[in-house]
Amino acid sequence: MEIVLASASPRRRELLSLITEHFTVCPADADETLRDAPLGEEVTRLSRLKAEAVQAQHPNAVCIGSDTMVTIDGLRLGKPKDADEAASMLRRLRGRTHEVLTGLAVLTPDGGAHTLHTCTRVTFRDFTEDELAAYLATGEPLDKAGAYGIQGHGALLIKGIEGDYYSVMGLPVAPLYTILRDIHAV
Rank of each mutant, 00 (worst) to 15 (best):
I150R: 03
R13D: 09
R35H: 10
H153C: 14
G152Y: 14
S66Q: 00
I19F: 09
G111W: 03
M1A: 02
L180T: 00
K50V: 04
H58I: 02
A174W: 02
R94V: 13
K159S: 12
G152P: 13
V4D: 11
G154N: 07
R96M: 00
G103W: 11
P38S: 09
R11F: 04
I179Y: 01
L142Q: 13
T138G: 10
M89G: 10
P38W: 07
G40M: 02
L34C: 12
T128K: 06
A137H: 01
T138S: 15
P38K: 10
I150D: 04
A105K: 11
G95R: 07
M89A: 11
E14I: 01
G154C: 13
Q151Y: 06
I161K: 08
L93F: 15
H153Y: 15
A134V: 04
F23P: 08
F23M: 10
D164V: 06
F23A: 05
D31C: 09
T44M: 05
L132C: 06
P109K: 09
L171A: 00
H114Q: 01
D67G: 02
L77F: 07
L5H: 05
A28Q: 11
A53W: 05
L49R: 15
A137T: 02
L75H: 12
T115L: 02
V106A: 08
Y166Q: 15
P109V: 07
D73C: 00
A56C: 09
A61D: 08
A8Y: 05
D143H: 01
Y148R: 15
L132G: 08
G95E: 01
T123P: 05
T44Q: 03
F124L: 06
L5C: 07
R121A: 13
L49Q: 13
A133P: 03
L15C: 04
D126V: 03
D84R: 13
S7E: 08
T138I: 07
P27F: 09
T138E: 14
G103A: 01
I64H: 00
T128E: 05
S47C: 06
D110T: 15
D82R: 07
I150N: 03
S9F: 00
S167Y: 01
D29S: 12
T123K: 05
Y148F: 15
D164F: 08
